[in-house]
């Protein structure tokens, strides 16, 4: 099913919001264990591209295949897709009425029909992975922004996704809290997790990306290995990284 072994593949993806063309023929492939970083100016369609992968947006044209699921197919089994894909957003989306542990075991218990004991064991494991094992019984509002974001990552990991999507997960954080979240993502990459992430952290992108996608006016304007961030070939990317660095 996977096109030449890619975990994620997008071919000629078009997407408009009303008259606004946001994605104008996007192509990319992410292999197993690869980290792809999407960069670009505000409004260039990065979030939209990412959201299309988990079918939070439907596309007008083209084809997207994620973990063998034909995302662009109207009859797609969304539940199956979303068990394979973990997504973490910019705003910390923990459920405020549940403790960290309850947040984490909710989906495994109801979607995967895991036993409560097994799910709780796993909650401990994923929390250890993000360095929050002692916060099991805290409510989200008792955690710092960085801790909430790490807990949200742990919640996704508990579903044992095959690919993780991150949309500017550190943008809402104070600079001193950014590092702790990025460290968690780095550890995931080192573990071989396949990831697609939108980020403005250029230094981080350089270190972690196997592949960089620079989006500009709804198109992939320039793409390649992380080295394009230091030696861009298009003036637009040069200007973009020049400004960001």
């Amino acid at each position: 099913m996977d096109t030449n072994g890619a975990v994620v593949s997008a071919r000629d993806v078009h997407k408009s919001f009303g008259p606004l063309k946001v994605l104008d023929g996007i192509d990319f492939e992410v292999q197993r264990g690869e980290v792809m970083v999407i960069i670009g100016r505000s409004g260039s369609g990065k979030s939209t591209a990412l959201r299309c992968l988990d079918r939070f947006e439907t596309i007008d044209e083209g084809e997207i295949i994620v973990c063998g699921h034909h995302v662009s197919d109207p009859n797609i089994d969304l539940r199956a897709l979303r068990q394979d894909v973990g997504i973490v957003f910019q705003s910390y989306n923990l459920f405020p009425h549940l403790t960290v542990e309850e947040n984490i075991i909710l989906a495994p218990c109801s979607v995967k029909r895991a036993s409560k004991t097994a799910a709780k064991e796993q909650a401990k494991r994923v929390l250890a992975q993000v360095g929050l094992e002692e916060k099991l019984h805290y409510y989200p509002e008792q955690l710092s922004g960085g801790q909430q974001q790490r807990a949200a990552i742990a919640r996704s990991l508990a579903m044992q996704p095959k690919v993780m999507l991150f949309d500017e997960v550190t943008s809402a954080l104070d600079p001193e809290l950014t590092g702790e979240v990025l460290k968690v993502i780095e550890a995931l990459a080192a573990d071989g997790m396949t990831m697609v992430m939108v980020t403005h952290e250029m230094g981080f992108a350089k270190g972690i990306a196997d592949q960089v996608l620079f989006m500009h006016r709804g198109k992939v304007h320039e793409s390649g290995p992380a080295t394009i961030l230091t030696s861009p070939t298009t003036p637009e990317l040069a200007q973009f990284v020049g400004k960001e660095l």
């Binding site: 939070f56 539940r79 979303r82 989306n93 923990l94 989906a107 979607v111």
Partner: peptide, 16 residues
């Protein structure tokens, strides 16, 4: 709305 999306991203059904 992000609460709906977070729940959706975790593969919960509409009723859940």
């Amino acid at each position: 709305k992000p609460q709906w999306e977070a729940a959706e991203g975790l593969a919960l059904t509409k009723a859940e």
